[in-house]
Every structure is written in C-alpha cells, then in structure tokens.
Design a protein around this nucleic acid. Structure first.
Length: 103
DNA sequence: ACAATGACCCAGT
DNA sequence: AACTGGGCCATTG
C-alpha cells in the first residue's frame, strides 16, 4: 500500500460513516467522493480489511451481495448485516428502501 | 506509458 | 429476465 491513499482514504471515510443498521452502494460512494468508479470502492475495502471499514455494509446498487466476498462468501455478509438489524428481502438482497443510506 | 484487471453501473438487445 | 458491450478510473506488472 502506498502512502497516497487518495481514493482509498476517501472511500474508507465514507464507508466508516455508514450508520449501523444501514447499507450503502458502491455507486453512491463512488460518486460521493467525486469519482464514477464503483469498482475502486470495492477494491479499497477489500484490500484494507480494516475494522473501521465495515465492508459488509457495502452492497451493490440493488442491495445485491457479491459472491466474491472475503469473509467466506455473501452468506457471511448476510449474517453480519442481520446482526446489525437488517432484514433481507431475498437470499442476496437487502431492503434498500429501508436501509439504503445516502451521503 | 501501455495492457490487463476489477467486491460495479448503465443501456441496449 | 439474462447476456453483451461500453464506460469509468485506480492498481499492478
């Protein structure tokens, strides 16, 4: 990792600002920091693995979870989100109407 | 500097 | 609804 965490730092800040019991989308975060690149958001959280970065609170735009999550799969993330008080609409989807957080 | 990659998003078919 | 192709932009070799 470099010292210049330019995007990294911004992404990390935004993700850390997500309230407990809420989820945010890659696209929202990406645009929030001034970029259009949602992929970098995922990269940042994935590479860092910092406890301050609740990756499980970050989902795709539709609330859809990713199959390639680090913790052991989307199932792990699902459990963590449920622990935050989030109810899943589908096997891999969160209720963005209720839990979708915007900056 | 270039090519390939990526936990995504959007539009068209 | 599923697949395809393009975009976006930082990271890595």
């Amino acid at each position: 990792m470099k010292e210049k965490d330019s995007f990294f730092d911004q992404i990390r800040a935004q993700v850390a600002k997500i309230p407990k019991g809420r989820v945010s989308t890659y696209g929202e975060i990406a645009r929030s920091i001034g970029s259009r690149d949602a992929r970098k958001v995922g990269w940042a959280v994935y590479g860092n693995k910092d406890p301050k970065i609740p990756c499980h609170r970050v989902v795709a735009k539709d609330g859809n979870l990713s199959e390639k999550f680090s913790f052991g799969g989307y199932l792990m993330q699902k459990q963590m989100l449920e622990a935050e008080g989030i109810i899943f609409n589908d096997e891999k989807k969160v209720d963005m109407e209720k839990y979708g957080f915007s900056f």
